[in-house]
């Protein structure tokens, strides 16, 4: 996969030894300024065009969201929320949903197939579908409900952050196409600076709680939002407030894994040494000893 330096893999699913760490590349990030988004869905179209994805034409379910949810062939979806503020004003919140590219990815942690999920040194989390076994553990591990399994090939898919474009110095397709400049891309550091400017601007314009969404519970993300109401991310179509990998997933993929194997190994080993020490429990040998008293004289 990664013969390009820009796609050095630093973390690999179901791999217990470290991946190459030596080369230092810049962390990238995509910044989505929700306050600038007009909900035109050009990013959805650009995504499907660049990635050669043609999703089924679905049905209108009575809301602007189209398609109604992320699918194996729709890696990003505009989420529309009609939010009524305390003073009765209606606000239309539009959030571009898709993979957040966590620094500590729950999908990668949960995946049992070696190398099916990788994290490049630039921070992008990518699915390598030819290694995917279709078990859905990535869905179990993801704190953002992002991966989707295709019904035909049973492989998991999600936003790649256009890793192929980024690898050759281009910005992701959604960024390139966004007509309002709501989506920007660059080094994570630069995106922090840009976000800070935007937040100052929003605060001046009365959005007192404007802020950056870069949740520390998952080690920060390589897709970040500027939110007008950063104190209530959940109003943006359920964007989790303080997401982290579920403790159930951490136990399953953390302590349980080595402890269970150790317990099995020690049980077998204990059995072996028990046999070596006390020997078999043999009714017929006892009987033989009774018939030939001499043989019971020695140790047994």
């Amino acid at each position: 996969m990664s013969s390009l330096q820009s796609l050095d893999i630093t973390r690999r699913s179901a791999t217990t030894t470290p991946s190459p760490q030596v080369r230092n590349t810049v962390d990238v990030a995509k910044l989505i300024d929700v306050s600038k988004c007009i909900g035109c869905k050009a990013c959805q179209v650009a995504c499907s065009e660049w990635n050669d994805l043609r999703d089924e034409i679905g049905f209108n379910v009575g809301v602007y969201d189209n398609p109604a949810d992320l699918t194996a062939k729709s890696w990003t979806v505009m989420r529309f929320t009609e939010y009524v503020e305390q003073d009765g004003r209606l606000e239309w919140l539009i959030r571009k949903d898709g993979c957040m590219h966590c620094a500590d990815p729950g999908c990668l942690k949960a995946c049992p197939a070696p190398g099916a999920i990788v994290q490049y040194s630039n921070g992008i989390v990518d699915f390598v579908e030819e290694h995917c076994i279709g078990c859905g553990s990535c869905i179990t591990g993801c704190p953002f409900n992002i991966p989707r399994i295709d019904k035909k090939d049973n492989k998991a898919y999600k936003c790649t952050l256009c890793s192929d474009r980024v690898a050759v110095g281009l910005e992701p397709a959604c960024v390139k196409t966004c007509p309002t400049g709501a989506i920007t891309f660059g080094s994570k550091e630069d995106m922090h600076v840009h976000a800070a400017e935007r937040i100052v601007d929003l605060k001046e314009r009365g959005y007192k709680t404007a802020g950056l969404y870069d949740p520390p519970g998952v080690g920060g993300t390589h897709v970040m939002y500027v939110l007008k109401h950063a104190d209530k991310p959940e109003i943006y179509h359920g964007l989790p407030n303080d997401p982290s990998i579920s403790p159930l997933v951490s136990v399953w993929k953390g302590a349980l894994k080595p402890l269970a194997l150790l317990a099995m190994g020690f049980t077998a080993l204990f059995g072996f040494f028990h046999y070596v020490k006390v020997g078999p429990n043999d009714a017929d040998a006892d009987a033989a000893d009774e018939t030939h008293p001499d043989s019971s004289a020695g140790p047994r």
Partner: peptide, 19 residues
């Protein structure tokens, strides 16, 4: 995990107790 450990004990007991 518990089942596999239980079966290891079960198999060992069958080896240990001859017959």
């Amino acid at each position: 995990t518990f089942m596999i450990i239980g079966i290891i004990v079960h198999i060992y007991a069958a080896i240990w107790v001859k017959g």
